[in-house]
Design a protein around this nucleic acid. Sequence first.
DNA 1: ACGCACCATTACAACGATGTAATGGTGGAC
DNA 2: GTCCACCATTACATCGTTGTAATGGTGCGT
Lengths: 329, 329
Amino acid sequence: MKDVAQRAGVSPKTVSNVINGVVFVRDETRERVLAALTELDYVPNLSARGLRNGRSGVIALALPDLATAYSAETAAAFVELAHERGWGVQIEQTGAEPHREAELISRARAHLVDGLVLNPVRLAESAIVTGGQLPPVVLIGEVQQDLVDSVSVDSVAAARDMTAALIARGHRRILALGTVRADFDTASARSRTEGYRQALAAAGLPHDPVLEVGVPWTPGDAAAAMRAHLARHGAPDAIFAFTDSMALGALSELWRAGLAVPADVAVAGFDDVVEGRFASPPLSTVSFDRRAFAATALELLERRILDRDAPRERRVVPHALAFRASTGD
Amino acid sequence: MKDVAQRAGVSPKTVSNVINGVVFVRDETRERVLAALTELDYVPNLSARGLRNGRSGVIALALPDLATAYSAETAAAFVELAHERGWGVQIEQTGAEPHREAELISRARAHLVDGLVLNPVRLAESAIVTGGQLPPVVLIGEVQQDLVDSVSVDSVAAARDMTAALIARGHRRILALGTVRADFDTASARSRTEGYRQALAAAGLPHDPVLEVGVPWTPGDAAAAMRAHLARHGAPDAIFAFTDSMALGALSELWRAGLAVPADVAVAGFDDVVEGRFASPPLSTVSFDRRAFAATALELLERRILDRDAPRERRVVPHALAFRASTGD
DNA sequence: ACGCACCATTACAACGATGTAATGGTGGAC
DNA sequence: GTCCACCATTACATCGTTGTAATGGTGCGT
């Protein structure tokens, strides 16, 4: 900046004023500075700016597992919308480990990022509970917590609705894929299991533990679990996988077993990822507006960054059921 | 830091020395400082550190479209490996637009990121060609260019190998999905189209323009194109989609048309994404080690960051063909 | 007892941008 | 002609950290 100032024959501060659009700059001066700016191909040092005014213009987005289609779509929405607000997005993977979550919060406090959008997996162990100085944080997903803002879909209602829809289509033995298991006990799994059970109860259907298949939320684990289930218990009427990703794994295994979807078994998922839309057959699923979700989270985060003491907010984004061929629609 | 120093009864610089593991610190002093550090819950200001020593410890990863399974797996590999090197990853979406690429290079020069891993889409228009002051950049993907380091898979060979494998399985009319089109002319599309043609020529098979379907690389576009093709020209013997994502779209459309895979039409993809592994039927594809790919890119980037004048390198990561049920394997 | 070497610590400046307060310069009113 | 108001610009300090050079203190050899 010093060089630019010298070239334009003004002080560094005047250059700063031009860059930041301060009003009291004579047109002639401004033009001289702008010329020098482009001639020297000046680029501001954001570390310095960040140091000076306490903002880096970067937020962090932390997801449990980046390697999934769901993460990809979520990240894309956040990056695009954050960019509109002039923010960069630093992306992080927590691997569902609380210590990684805590680490990220430290990083945020390290002023490298102005705020943090965090998708925690377990509540009790979550780093958030450790009071202390919290940077601006917005939680996304099922984990709710008293100290910070959050955005979520009503997973209980969504799972209940989808299960009810399967029941309405005449299915009785509905396998839930991805329910809570001792070694895989997440808030999302709990909500969706809860919704599933509520729908069964409401319809007066028996609750069969065999139909609750606890399994890590990956297509591979889902496929393996389905294979074991089919061998031991035969085919259910329908499968409600708690993520599209697991539903795809289930579809693959059904194909392998020579079972037709939806003729022999109906299948539904959760998330509405693109790959589900183009599955064979296309997957019925719980859908929600990813952009609206991200926009809400960013809105809360910005509010929190501007005012640390703003009242805590908990927003719920509406969901909808998308019925496609995998349930015979 | 000043507070910590005061509490420990030393100067700020000594605190800094303790934090950075400088040798000449008496054990007793170190302990006092460490105690003060934890008592005050000190977190270093990374903007200040970045300003002082010219490194932010963050790199940028720029991909054309974040909302794909391929991007997700790529990003996950980069984030994980970068984290091992102590780097954060800022993620960006270029939308295949050269001006976004140029913008990112500016950002890199703005010292918010120490380097940039860029997946450009078109060569001629790419921002890289505008000489000027370049920050440390590593290109990934097919776009090759003289000024900067790059890592890629040999797409021509890979496409040739896969096409040859389809020919070896007795297929003659092999549809290539995602070939170059006037309004969608990318380096990757060129390489793969080239490899496809080479294999046909090597086998003495005729080159039928009808079988080269130019289409944007998304499952939706692929499905639509397949539908049109099936209606007009009937089913080919096999389909070689230039991404798994398009292959999934094609599978979906074949399912819709009542065509059996692989009995009626064989299908192969490119990328080996998880969703392809669990497609119905599982997708044959061109596979490569994503982690090794990312590791190579990061290695080149680090080298470049440490030495701007290091000789330019162009690395090729090996690929392999994975044959699964979609080609009858 | 003196000086020297060596280790531990400190004072100071600098990284680059920007807020604050002060300065310089111009035009108008009386 | 003088003074004031007001606009444009500048000098200086500051954000938090760390490299450099200087300082202080201890123990050893002679």
